[in-house]
Design a protein around this nucleic acid. Sequence first.
DNA 1: TTTCGACCTCTTAA
DNA 2: ATTAAGAGGTCGA
Length: 377
Amino acid sequence: MTVDLVWRSLPLSTKELSLSRVLRCGQAFRWNNVNSVWSFSTKDRIILLKQDDQNLHYAYILAESSKDRNGPESTLLFIADYFNLDVKLADLYEQWSQVEKKCRPGSKTTSFAGFPGIRMLRQDPWETVVLFICSSNNNVKRISKMCHSLCHEYGTFINEHDGVNYYAFPQPELLAKPEVEDRLRELGFGYRAKYIQRTASMFMDNENYPHITLDSLWELRSKTSEEAHEYLIELCGVGPKVADCISLMCLDNHDVVPVDTHVLQIAVRDYKFKGPKTMNKIAYNQVKQHLRDLFGEYAGWAQLVMFAADLSDLNNGINQVDGQAIKHEVADMKVEVKQESYVGKVEQVVKVEQVERVSGKRKIKTDMVVKKIKTEA
DNA sequence: TTTCGACCTCTTAA
DNA sequence: ATTAAGAGGTCGA
C-alpha cells in the first residue's frame, strides 16, 4: 500500500531546535533516522520530521484505525507540545552562557555555544517511566535497542513506512502479566525486566496501589516536583536519579537536575561545588540544589546541554566541534540480513553497518531497519 | 540510618 | 582478537 506523503513546514531555526542533537542526546530513545528523515510512532500515527536552516518540515501517516479528520492540525499540535515550542531556547542559552562565563572566566568557548538547538522534550509520562527504568547502568545505544524491541514485541501496530513497521509504545496493561518478565529477559533487558513488569502491574493493581494510575501519573504535571519525586520513587526500579529524569522530561519540572557521579564531577570541576565528593543522598541533593540555584528555572535544560556536550555519540553526523569541521568519509559498508522468529510471526532483520572515518578516526555508525516479510498464524 | 555488593547485557577502550 | 571497565542506578542486606 502506498501513502501520499504531504510535507508541511514550520518556520523554526536550527538554533531553536536541532533534531539530530535533541533526538540523540539521551532523552528520547525511539526515533528512527532513515534517509535523513526522523520518524516516530505515537498511539495513532507515524510522525515524520526533517529540517533545514530555517524550517522544520513535518508529515504524518495515520494508523488505519484512526478516525482523525484533521490530521495536519493535530500533528502540528503534537509537535508543538512534544518539543516544548513555547519556550524560547536562544534566550536561555544566552542566560546560561553568562553563568558559565562567571564560573569559568578562563575558558574560551562555552559548552552552550558549541551545541545549539538542544531543548527538553515533553514526552509521554508512562513511556518516560519505562524508558528511564531501562536507563539504569546502561548506555544510549542499548536503551534505544530495548525500547524498539519493547514496542515491537508488545506495542500495537500503527502502520508501515519505507519498509519499516511502526508500533505504539505498549500501555501498562500489556506489560503487567507475570510472563512478561521472562520474555523481556530473553530480549536482553537483564534485571530491568522485573522492574518493568512490576511497575506495570502496580498501575493495574487497584487494590494494593489505588493511588497509582495513569491518571494520577499525568496529574503530577500540575503538582510540585517534590510530590512528583515522592510518587515516582515508589515505582519498582525508580530511584532518586531516575525519578528526577522522569520529573524533568515529561512532568514540566524544568528546574530539576538529575545527578549522577558524572554530574557531581562536572559540578566540582566547573561550577565551584564544594561539598562531599562521593555520591550519597546528601551529596545528591546538594549538587542538585547548587546547579538549580546557578542556572535557574530551566536548570534541568542546561544540564541536558552539558551532558550532550560530553556524549561522544553525538558528534557523529554533526560537523562541528569547537568551530572546526569534522571530516566524514565513508570507508566501508556492511549489510547483514538475518531471520528472526517470534511467536506467530517470522521477520527478516536487515542490519546496515556503515563504517566511517571521522577526522581520521574509525567510527561505526549502525542503522537498524526491521522489515517484516512474512506472517504466519 | 548509611554503606556496599550484586545485578544483566552490551559497548568501548586498551 | 580478547579482555576489562563502565554505562547519566536501584535494591536489599
